[in-house]
Design a protein around this nucleic acid. Structure first.
Lengths: 188, 188
DNA sequence: CGACATATTGAGATCCATCAACCAATGTGG
DNA sequence: CCACATTGGTTGATGGATCTCAATATGTCG
């Protein structure tokens, strides 16, 4: 996991100024207010959202209940993956949880830029690989760990999470009910 | 999901003969006997394995117990993802479950070929995207469906699976005990 | 046939969801 | 500035889903 992030960061650090300039040119910084949506269900995810500063979550509705699939902090990138790749309506919502600064990049601009600047294509692949590894790890946790262990791992990886994200969303992200999470926390 | 597969298949169908020739040149077909390993834990995954004909599974050990993470059939591609991407020791095993024909492609040959034939790089990205979408869907199932529903979906998607794969592996793949799967099946 | 792998069935324990009541902090309108 | 609503979290009681352990059954293959 960490290694892939290292790879990406190193790659970015070595990018030529021309490529960086393009990246900058096709990105727009914008501030969103707490509760604002970056993306709603049924919309096509036409932008990628780089969280410059703030917090956000991605979720979908299942039987009318919200299932949180991802939590975002500074420097994370938020997209609805299949909606973005296939430019089809999203099942997911993306919502900022605090006032948040976002640098958004247009999908089609990025596709065009990739053709002219092959390093962007390589970057795209590396970030997709990273996402797949992240998903594998998450699946591993669901496959092998009970709720208590998953919670422990979460606060170990993101100690600041509890102060910043309502427990309701954390519980949903961990795949347990709010009540169960509350009891897990009480026990320690 | 299906749409991404369509995209990939269409892309392959339109590949120029030169690119196809290269792909062929760096691939080797080989037959493995039931029970053979394509990859063992702690080895680096230096090849991708295209299942031409047969069945295989990927799994890892957790507390000495085997956890099956993926089942492969004709035309599936088997790799240990992070081991392959980062060329680091694998946590997973890949084993064929029947006598199986595999077309294996060397990692470094493919990396080299990608540089000369940009379409291979595009293909690489599309397949990685497909894998990420597949993982998202699997996570979705673990997040929202109980064991019975997951089993129903599996046999709906792969009706032939039950005849070809021992229940032990299917149970593990579904994240339930063999006993529970047996009871689920008995109930219908 | 015998042996080993694979699958079924039963009983008890455990984890977790659900429903419901309650509490604490925050915010808002009069 | 108070009364009350709202949001977010806790706690208790109960039931359901699933696991584990153990016994039994059913292959399947040399």
């Amino acid at each position: 996991m960490i290694s892939q992030l290292d790879k990406i960061n190193e790659f970015i650090a070595r990018l030529d100024t021309e490529t960086l300039t393009v990246l900058n040119r096709i990105s727009v910084e914008k501030i969103f207010k707490k509760g604002d949506f970056l993306l709603r269900q049924d919309e096509v995810c036409k932008k990628s959202f780089w969280v410059v500063k703030g917090t956000a979550r991605k979720y979908y509705l299942n039987d009318g209940k919200e299932i949180t699939t991802e939590l975002y902090f500074d420097n994370d990138i938020a997209i609805s993956f299949d909606s973005y790749c296939l430019q089809k309506p999203s099942r997911e919502f993306i919502q900022v949880l605090t006032d948040t600064t976002i640098s958004q990049t247009d999908f089609s601009s990025f596709q065009t830029a990739k053709q002219q600047f092959p390093k962007l294509a390589i970057l795209d692949l590396m970030m997709t690989e990273y996402y797949a590894m992240w998903l594998e790890d998450r699946l591993f946790q669901f496959h092998t760990m009970d709720a208590t262990s998953r919670y422990s791992k979460l606060i170990q990886d993101h100690p600041y999470i509890v102060q910043n994200i309502p427990l309701t969303f954390i519980a949903s992200y961990l795949g347990v009910s709010l009540e169960t999470l509350s009891r897990i926390r009480a026990k320690k």
